[in-house]
């Protein structure tokens, strides 16, 4: 059965273009050895061969998707603007959550007028939990509220308790583990 399949055509062409970019630009410019090299009078496989083979596979797949779309075969692609919008919003939520995770601890230490820096306090109570709990709360609370489309006590409780339980599971039994983002600070 033939049908309009513009999305698949765009997809096939996009992967074809990406493969050509990898094969003709990225691999030659960002690899120091060729496909095969002569090292100490012996031929060896260079670093460029394996990624080139990968690019050929992508090109082959992209070409087949394109041919199918041109012939009106295959299945309509379900990816649409709503998926891109969801990805953008999810990225924004994760960005805010990790921003809080990264800065709430140091900010609280500064506001509390502690003599020590956050780095020195990052494995002590209550400082070590502040970033993780606040970032985790935002991530979970906003996700649940977005699905339920209303503020609920249940969403609040899950968003408070789940990060706390995760923090305790990792932190209480293991002395050498640091919760995010304390290992980087």
């Amino acid at each position: 059965m033939k049908h309009n399949n513009k999305g698949e055509l765009v997809l096939g062409l996009a992967f074809l273009a990406f493969a050509l970019f990898v094969l003709l630009i990225w691999v030659p410019l960002d690899t120091d050895t060729g496909l095969i090299e002569k090292v100490r009078r012996r031929w060896v496989i260079g670093d460029a061969l394996a990624p080139s083979v990968a690019a050929v596979l992508i090109a082959l797949g992209g070409g087949l998707v394109t041919i199918n779309a041109l012939l009106g075969r295959g299945e309509p692609m379900p990816l649409g603007w709503s998926s891109l919008r969801f990805a953008g919003l999810s990225f924004g939520l994760l960005f805010v959550a990790f921003l809080l995770m990264r800065w709430i601890g140091p900010l609280a230490v500064t506001l509390a007028g502690e003599a020590e820096s956050y780095r020195n306090l990052r494995d002590t109570l209550p400082w070590k939990y502040l970033g993780f709990l606040s970032g985790g709360f935002v991530l979970i609370f906003v996700s649940i509220v977005a699905v339920e489309r209303r503020l609920t006590v249940r969403a609040f409780l899950v968003a408070v308790l789940a990060p706390l339980i995760i923090a305790l599971v990792y932190d209480l039994p293991f002395d050498d583990l640091l919760l995010p983002p304390n290992g980087d600070l």
Binding site: T33, D47, A50, P51, A54, I58, L60, V65
Partner: peptide
């Protein structure tokens, strides 16, 4: 066809940074 693309992407990502040469490809 999409399976081939998926495998190709997996291989490509696996080859980033790890090679025989001094410069990480």
């Amino acid at each position: 066809a999409k399976g081939l693309i998926s495998a190709g992407l997996g291989l490509l990502v696996a080859y980033i940074g790890k090679g025989e040469d001094f410069y990480p490809r």
